[in-house]
């Protein structure tokens, strides 16, 4: 039962992006299309699962003074693997995501989960926590990507959503649009959470 809670919490109640406001760099930078968002979600999920698994395995042998350094080595290994893998097998996606894949190494969601959870909990709980957080991150990026792609290009994952009458809001695929959508989604998340908290 407790494990289920660890798994579910990241989806909404402790959503890493909209509630904890972590990992905003990829959230703002690569969500101009759903396709890019999916690529980023996959890369982050891979890194997060891998490092949570390893970190919770080794948590007892790592001295406290160098835990951050060790975690970073683990994370950086996974990030580099993800980056090379994309470059080898998905060159177009790798080009579109640009420096934001290597930058996952400084994504606060990942180091945050190691420090706050994986280094203190068992393997199963840590993996479930990582999976839940990845899903939460995925929900956030899909929301951002969908809103921005639909409004900014009139398409969703490349498929036409509106007829030819629709005039795309170019600002939505520019950085400024990311901030607008981000602000409105945080507003939405918090209002809904508040409404639930009152009950």
């Amino acid at each position: 039962m407790n494990l289920l809670k660890e798994f579910i919490k990241g989806w909404w109640k402790e959503n890493p992006v909209f509630v904890m406001v972590l990992g905003t760099c990829p959230t703002l930078a690569v969500t101009n299309s759903v396709k890019n968002a999916i690529g980023m979600i996959a890369a982050v999920a891979f890194v997060l699962l891998g490092s949570s698994f390893i970190v919770s395995l080794i948590r007892k042998i790592v001295p406290n003074q160098v835990r951050i350094a060790t975690f970073i080595v683990v994370i950086a290994t996974f990030v580099t693997m993800a980056d090379r893998y994309l470059a080898a097998f998905y060159p177009q996606l790798s080009k579109a995501l640009g420096p934001y894949v290597p930058l996952i190494v400084v994504n606060c969601i990942i180091l945050g989960r190691q420090e706050a959870f994986a280094s203190k909990n068992g393997v199963l709980a840590s993996v479930l926590d990582a999976l839940g957080m990845s899903i939460g991150f995925g929900i956030a990026l899909m929301l951002m990507g969908s809103v921005r792609e639909i409004l900014g290009s009139g398409t969703w994952l490349g498929m036409k959503v509106f007829g030819s009458w629709y005039i795309p809001w170019q600002v939505m695929i520019l950085p400024a649009g990311a901030f607008f959508v981000f602000g409105f989604l945080i507003w939405g998340f918090n209002s809904i959470n508040k409404a639930f908290a009152k009950r």
């Binding site: 005039i167 809001w169 170019q170 600002v171 939505m172 520019l174 400024a176 649009g177």
Partner: peptide, 10 residues
């Protein structure tokens, strides 16, 4: 300003 950024051509 929003319109300028959203619909530069129009």
């Amino acid at each position: 300003a929003f319109l300028q950024a959203a619909f530069p051509t129009q």
